[in-house]
Computed example of a mutant assay.
Amino acid sequence: MIRFLPGLLALVLAIYTLVDCVQTPEEAVRGLPKVVWVFVILLFPFAGPAGWWFAGRPKTYALPGRANPNQPPRPKGPDDDPDFLRGL
């Protein structure tokens, strides 16, 4: 059983990294084009995923449905909104 562990670990790491790469927006990928990263992840079992996590993955990116991390937080309610309170 223990001899299958490195292969299983490589497979799980490659699948997880491949899903992360495919879901990342094209314009957010660093280093190489997204298609090249997919091939690198598939061809090099441990080096491909490690390269993606350290050199290809964006540092931050906004996911659909989430606020942009570079924008300041919005007010929570009307009593916290200065524009709304100014209009009273």
Rank of each mutant, 00 (worst) to 15 (best):
residue 6 P to N: 05
residue 83 D to Q: 13
residue 12 V to A: 08
residue 42 L to E: 12
residue 37 W to A: 04
residue 34 K to S: 03
residue 46 F to H: 10
residue 58 P to I: 08
residue 26 E to I: 13
residue 67 A to I: 04
residue 10 A to G: 12
residue 16 Y to Q: 08
residue 9 L to C: 13
residue 23 Q to F: 07
residue 48 G to Y: 01
residue 67 A to N: 08
residue 81 D to N: 06
residue 77 G to A: 11
residue 20 D to V: 01
residue 58 P to V: 10
residue 32 L to H: 09
residue 52 W to R: 04
residue 31 G to R: 00
residue 81 D to Q: 03
residue 51 G to F: 03
residue 80 D to C: 12
residue 28 A to W: 01
residue 69 P to K: 04
residue 28 A to E: 08
residue 88 L to K: 14
residue 85 L to T: 12
residue 42 L to Y: 11
residue 51 G to W: 05
residue 16 Y to D: 10
residue 63 L to I: 07
residue 68 N to R: 02
residue 61 Y to S: 12
residue 23 Q to N: 09
residue 22 V to D: 14
residue 9 L to Q: 14
residue 47 A to M: 07
residue 54 F to C: 15
residue 66 R to L: 07
residue 52 W to K: 04
residue 7 G to V: 11
residue 7 G to E: 13
residue 67 A to K: 11
residue 59 K to M: 11
residue 3 R to V: 07
residue 68 N to H: 04
residue 82 P to F: 00
residue 38 V to W: 02
residue 77 G to M: 08
residue 26 E to N: 14
residue 87 G to N: 05
residue 69 P to N: 10
residue 46 F to P: 05
residue 6 P to M: 03
residue 37 W to D: 02
residue 80 D to N: 14
residue 2 I to S: 10
residue 62 A to Q: 15
residue 14 A to G: 07
residue 22 V to L: 14
residue 41 I to V: 07
residue 88 L to F: 15
residue 31 G to L: 00
residue 2 I to N: 08
residue 45 P to L: 02
residue 58 P to C: 07
residue 30 R to T: 03
residue 50 A to W: 06
residue 34 K to D: 02
residue 65 G to C: 04
residue 86 R to T: 12
residue 52 W to P: 05
residue 45 P to N: 10
residue 35 V to F: 02
residue 46 F to V: 14
residue 69 P to C: 05
residue 32 L to F: 02
residue 48 G to F: 01
residue 47 A to H: 06
residue 47 A to T: 10
residue 60 T to S: 13
residue 34 K to V: 01
residue 68 N to P: 02
residue 72 P to H: 09
residue 84 F to W: 07
residue 46 F to W: 06
residue 79 D to Y: 13
residue 86 R to V: 11
residue 7 G to L: 06
residue 27 E to H: 03
residue 85 L to K: 13
residue 38 V to L: 06
residue 75 P to M: 01
residue 87 G to C: 04
residue 74 R to F: 10
residue 3 R to T: 12
residue 22 V to T: 11
residue 45 P to E: 07
residue 46 F to L: 09
residue 15 I to L: 11
residue 54 F to K: 15
residue 38 V to E: 04
residue 58 P to N: 11
residue 68 N to I: 01
residue 28 A to V: 04
residue 8 L to W: 10
residue 22 V to H: 15
residue 64 P to T: 08
residue 19 V to I: 13
residue 6 P to T: 05
residue 46 F to K: 03
residue 75 P to I: 01
residue 9 L to D: 10
residue 81 D to T: 06
residue 64 P to G: 15
residue 79 D to N: 12
residue 74 R to L: 13
residue 38 V to H: 06
residue 20 D to Q: 06
residue 69 P to M: 05
residue 79 D to F: 14
residue 52 W to Y: 15
residue 70 N to G: 14
residue 59 K to C: 09
residue 58 P to W: 08
residue 35 V to K: 05
residue 4 F to A: 14
residue 60 T to A: 13
residue 46 F to R: 03
residue 3 R to L: 11
residue 5 L to P: 02
residue 20 D to A: 04
residue 50 A to R: 09
residue 24 T to N: 00
residue 9 L to I: 12
residue 74 R to G: 14
residue 81 D to I: 03
residue 48 G to T: 04
residue 61 Y to F: 15
